[in-house]
């Protein structure tokens, strides 16, 4: 050590000091260890009927195995006249990263309100659906980490429901489940709403069997299905529970219902 102290620094190469840019390798560039997303769990579900659309979501918010809150709604009214959402005609559910959900909901809400102020008429669900896709895609390279379902009544007064992936790919559907328990609820919906794997009794043998034709269900039946879906999901998924909130869009407006779920 002593000898190195008296060594002539000028005689040695610049490698004596760690300042040269040539020392730098790609691995020297430090990277962010901050991960800007989290998953707040929960599930959402939407089903449409002839003259109504229902959006439902549980009210639990989680971080890992912890419950943040037993009442953190993830279904929103869009285009209402005040902060309570009174007068809204479109509903939106957002599940995934809750902070993005809140931000996205506020943004779409503003857009739908501005539409009304500027054009003097309500935005159609179809237009709103396209706008939501545009908003989501505008953040294609830093996405809103949410699965969205948008619902309302279309121009003919029939239930309309659109489902999205986080970057804005969307389609109109009869029903959709999203979030943590989507994989539990969706097959149930396929069977109970779209009558998948259901056949007309005595309609034939083997491949001659006629599939049961899907048709829009009455509201009471749909509400029953939603409750069944969520009580079952609560049993089988730890991130689902506490409360079930439903927003039901009819020609009269948006109704809200709440049912307690198991809090375990």
């Amino acid at each position: 050590m002593a000898s190195s102290l008296i060594a002539d620094p000028t005689s040695s190469s610049h490698n004596l000091y760690s300042f040269s840019p040539s020392d730098q390798t790609a691995s020297d560039i430090r990277q962010h260890s901050f991960y800007p997303y989290t998953d707040n769990g929960g599930s959402t579900l939407g089903i449409t009927g002839n003259d109504f659309a229902i959006l439902a979501g549980d009210t639990r918010s989680t971080s890992g195995y912890s419950i943040n809150s037993r009442y953190a709604p993830k279904v929103y009214r869009i285009g209402g006249e005040d902060e309570t959402g009174e007068g809204a005609h479109i509903v939106l559910s957002l599940v995934g990263y809750a902070a993005d959900g809140t931000a996205l909901q506020e943004r779409l809400n503003t857009v739908v309100k501005m539409y009304k102020y500027q054009h003097g008429k309500r935005m159609t669900v179809k237009a709103c659906a396209q706008r939501l896709a545009t908003i989501l895609y505008s953040k294609r390279f830093f996405p809103y980490y949410v699965q969205a379902i948008l619902a309302g009544l279309d121009e003919d007064g029939r239930g309309a429901l659109y489902s999205y992936d986080p970057v804005g790919s969307y389609e109109r559907e009869q029903c959709r489940a999203a979030g943590a328990a989507a994989s539990l609820i969706m097959p149930f919906l396929d069977n109970q709403v779209n009558f998948k794997n259901q056949y007309m009794p005595g309609s034939g043998e083997g491949h001659d069997l006629h599939a049961k034709q899907a048709e829009p269900l009455p509201r009471q039946e749909v509400e029953r299905l939603v409750k069944d879906a969520f009580t079952s999901a609560t049993e089988r998924h730890i991130e689902v529970g506490d409360g079930l909130q439903m927003l039901i869009v009819t020609a009269k407006g948006v109704e809200e219902t709440f049912y307690p779920l198991k809090r375990d």
Partner: peptide
Amino acid sequence: HLPQAWGRPRDDIYGHYDPS
């Protein structure tokens, strides 16, 4: 005679300093 080196820790004494 390397002004860039003035005040810098020397690798042979203090070890390599992460240049990043």
